[in-house]
């Protein structure tokens, strides 16, 4: 690995910022340089939310990704439309297929459509963990960090009274990982 640039984007409330935080935490636990850079501004409430995560073996320059992204995770259509063009050639688009789809045929990028909302609703009764399902898919698809590091990150991010959320998060992660593996 040299540098992995990953953009997580969706509606506010879909958990894009948390997804990115777990990824960044996992990268840090592996001893890499990491940055987690959120969008912040007047558009947050009810609008789009995104964060840019970089995991690298070198000191990180721009924490904002405007080109050569390795992966874009789009949890809704506006996010897909906004960020698909920052992907590098050969980069991976992971779309939350329930709410987003690439409208054109592209052979210069990899596309993985994950029906994360449906999967989360069927398993957990709500779409809340769709973000973690997509995180599982990212780790399988481009391996920016190891699976064990994500497990470690869960225990750091969900500390104390939040520990009760870990089993469902792990389950969701495994579902996404398996989906990506079976739908290459």
């Amino acid at each position: 690995m040299n540098t992995q640039r990953i953009c997580c984007a969706g509606f506010g409330g879909q958990g894009t910022l948390s997804m990115g935080k777990i990824l960044a935490y996992a990268g840090m636990l592996e001893g890499h340089e990491v940055s987690w850079c959120p969008s912040y501004g007047p558009e947050m409430r009810g609008g789009t939310a995104n964060c840019h995560v970089i995991v690298s073996d070198e000191p990180i320059g721009s924490p904002v990704i405007t080109r050569d992204a390795n992966c874009v995770i789009a949890m809704n259509q506006p996010s897909l439309d906004k960020f698909v063009d920052i992907l590098a050639k050969g980069g991976t688009l992971i779309a939350n297929a329930d709410l987003a789809a690439l409208k054109e045929d592209r052979d210069d990028i990899q596309v993985l459509n994950v029906p994360a909302n449906t999967m989360a609703s069927q398993e957990f009764g709500s779409a809340k963990l769709a973000n973690i399902i997509l995180l599982g898919a990212v780790i399988q698809a481009i391996s920016p960090v190891k699976v064990e590091s994500v497990d470690d990150a869960f225990t750091h991010v969900f500390g104390g009274s939040k520990a009760k959320f870990i089993p469902d998060n792990k389950k969701a992660f495994e579902m996404g990982f398996a989906f990506a593996k079976n739908n290459k």
Binding site: A24, M28, E33, V34, S35, W36, C37, Y40, P63, V64
Partner: peptide
Amino acid sequence: DGLIGQMMEP
């Protein structure tokens, strides 16, 4: 600046 305030790094 606001970016350094809002971003997370180790």
